[in-house]
Amino acid sequence: MHMADALLSPAVGTAMWGAAAATIAYSSMKVKKELDDRRIPLMGVLGAFIFAAQMINFTIPATGSSGHLGGGLLLTILLGPHAAFLTIASVLVVQSLFFADGGVLALGCNMFNLGFFPAFIAYPLIYRKIAGAQATQRRMTGGAIVAAVAGLQLGAFGVVLETVASGISSLPFATFVGLMQPIHLAIGIVEGLVTATVVAFVYKARPEIVAGAMASQPVGTAPLRRILFSFLAAALLTGGVVSWFASENPDGLEWAIARVTGAEEVAAGESPLHHGLADLQEKVAFLPDYSFRQGVATDHGATVSAGETGQDKASRLGTSVAGGVGALLSLAIAFCLGFVLKRRHQVA
């Protein structure tokens, strides 16, 4: 469920970054306020534990295929929402940097989908309500399954929304939802079962760990409302600015540059930069308007309407061929440069 950068638009990516950053700031403040410095190594080591646990696969009952623990709900049960969110977020950072499991720009989305939902929604609103203060084994199992399913459903829906809003994938919304939700229903049930099994084991062997974790976390919706609010504010702020860029002008970045450089009219392709480059090209190229010679030939020998389509087709072909050649060329230049730099490095 980790999202990659390749499917993300900058607007969605940065908006979610802003939201995740606000949640991190809020959770950090909370954790610091709790003043229990035993938490510091505990959070770190439990994060590493989740990392290790995710690498051990188990057999999913009745299917024969294998799955692994997600761990978001388990961490929240053991650490409480704030510390758990920070821990999940830190695991995601390491996964994205070292294993390309989720992108760097997509970190905000992933922290939200995989961290926010289990820690701030599924745990306090579902798990705590079902498990209660004096949890029995059965209530804990039931709570864990329902909470895990709910958390993963929300997370999966988050993935769908973020992907569709980014518009890089052509998958229609309905198809995507129809694909993601049922899969994550199954995954959620398994995740809940596994979480319950692990919690039950620890509860039997070291009851004070689970009990202590439960006791130290106040139940209540007040902090939730606050965090939801700050989260929304941050998302709206960052997302708003970026998408305003995007809506004012199809190319927000271009628009921003134009504002900075002071150009007045900036339709795509008419930046001063473009003019400069176009001039250069005109000086070098033989037939500047067309990328390929046959484009001109078609143009000359045809009627107006036919000529238009012909020219259109030819220039399209020209553009794509020129683009393709240029792409290879730029790749070659990049690697030659790299090679030279490396050689120089080794000689030096």
Binding site: L253, Q281, G318, V325, G326
Partner: peptide, 21 residues
């Protein structure tokens, strides 16, 4: 930013095509 605004690949391709013709 320059590479974002200007398709350098297509530019170079046209440049090359121009040089060859």
């Amino acid at each position: 930013v320059i590479l974002r605004l200007e398709n350098a690949a297509s530019f170079m391709g046209r440049l090359l095509a121009g040089l060859l013709t």
